[in-house]
Nucleic acid binder design. Structure first.
Lengths: 151, 151
DNA sequence: CACGAATAGTGGCATATGCCACTAAATGAA
DNA sequence: TTCATTTAGTGGCATATGCCACTATTCGTG
């Protein structure tokens, strides 16, 4: 195939996903900036909030995030006093996570901005389209790419 | 709203996008691992390849990526000898990028793996669904979130 | 009970991305 | 031509994510 007629990056599912994620991330981050939180941090605080003092592993699993990545991401939030951790009394391997009172206040503040971004997105993209998109993304997150065992 | 009935993260467009991106990224990275390249790097090499010695700004724009982020991402590829840069003779502010011969070889190798991942994804997700998804993601990338000027 | 296997996290290292302040180069207007 | 402005990148700093090797616990079994 000649270079001039090569298909663009529009063909790679992964590349398109990342590109859209950068775009949307920049927008949400922008709107949330006044709170001092990135959209990812707001999302993480929210996830912790709706969980029942979730274990790190549980959070990582629901966000489809590497456990160590979660640990790293949590650090600035702990440092800033929004989140605290404690060992599960029944299984000391397990570390549970919860919001501090300040974390709760900050989350409230951030959620207001999140609503603005979310609303703006749905206004621009269309509510139906947004909903269908989220459903499609949720499906992808649930896919199983494992090849069946060779035997 | 009570904590028990709070909606999950399934409602945030941005969070869902990032979550799906992590999932798919892990899969593509996994398949491409034998080449020593991450999916992002393969995508970047490809983008450079199909461009005509593109300027950094042009690459950043088409990937919707911050210019400085592109610079950072390029560094390991330059260090490993896959990519080289040179100043545009007509405008020395502009830095153009091209693959080295080794970069071209590496890209070929990576593309073979990319095809495997891409094919597997489409087998599992469905070809139609994948195509519709990419189209939706492309639309998002093209959206304009700016509010009309206040005046 | 003793010990090997499985589970949950941590820390180090590397890439992915962004923002901001700063520099170099090109441009346009006085 | 001169100088303010705009354009294109760079470097530093910070977060986002992942993998791997390693430690601490718990569990299951002989």
């Amino acid at each position: 195939m000649s270079k001039d007629t090569l298909p663009g990056l529009t063909l790679c599912n992964n590349a398109m996903l990342r590109r859209a994620a950068r775009k949307l991330g920049q927008f949400y981050d922008d709107v949330m900036a006044p709170s001092g939180l990135k959209a990812t941090q707001q999302g993480l605080l929210y996830q912790i909030h709706i969980g029942n003092e979730p274990a790190m592993g549980a959070i990582a699993a629901s966000l489809i995030m590497d456990l160590s990545a979660l640990g790293h991401t949590l650090k600035p939030l702990i440092r800033d006093g929004y989140v605290e951790t404690f060992a599960d009394p029944d299984d000391r391997r397990i570390k549970r996570v919860r919001l501090t009172p300040q974390g709760l206040v900050k989350l409230d503040e951030a959620m207001k901005l999140w609503h603005v971004a979310q609303q703006r997105f749905e206004d621009v993209a269309g509510k139906d389209k947004a909903e269908r998109l989220r459903a499609a993304l949720d499906e992808i997150a649930a896919l199983d790419f494992d090849l069946p065992p060779a035997s």
